[in-house]
Amino acid sequence: PPQTPIRAAMTSIQLLRGDLTSSGDQPSTVLATYFKNCTVDPTQDVLKRLETLGQVFSQRFGQAVGPRCVVYGRQRFALGVRLYYKVMEAMLKSEEKRLSVQNFSKLLNDSTFHKSLLACALEVVMSTYGESSFKNGGYNHGGGDPAETNVCFPWILDVFSLAAFDFYKVIESFIKAEPTLSKDIVKHLETCENLIMERIAWRTGSPLFELLKQEHESGAAEQVEPPAS
């Protein structure tokens, strides 16, 4: 029989938490090895960044949802960190297989990569809890429970001062690396992608414009694809 929305949400939350029980809140041995294999070990930067972003996230969550909800913000962040480590490890294993390399120093020392990945993990967690939802006009902040729309995507981008263009880069790899994501969550991330592609990435100040300018100046823009493709 079809589940009620409450039952469906509770099931999703149980599945997410169950999935992440075996994932630690610290880098696993495998992930720590990837960090140590880097030309510059990113471990300390990763941990420091998580501490800072955790405080920022919890405070902003409390501001958006209610001061008594800062504790829930910390819970969401803790789950997000577990998912972040889990997906990062899966991504690196996949890249190691694809590229036959074990030193991912440039990637793992890129703070934008880490912020994007963490933001995606948190978006998954908040979507699972129903806090980030495009139903009831979430993105346009129209209708529905005000608390549910206040942390709806792209709220997380503002919290982390993250460009939508950079967040977009991790979405597909995230979905590939975490096959246990539910249909609803994948749909949610796909909607985030579409929003970015159609609107947010084209806002003033997006890094996309500078990249397009660089591509144009390098002559790459001459290779134009026919409209059919």
Binding site: M91, S94, E95, R98, L99, F104, K106, L107, D110, T112, F113, K169, V170, E172, S173, I175, K176, P179, L181, K183, V186, K187, E190
Partner: peptide, 21 residues
């Protein structure tokens, strides 16, 4: 995978997207 369209080619991955050739 739930009708999601995977656009990255076999030679493309997170390393290329973050300019880590």
């Amino acid at each position: 995978s739930h009708d999601y369209h995977f656009g990255l080619e076999d030679h493309e991955g997170i390393s290329e997207l973050f300019d880590c050739d």
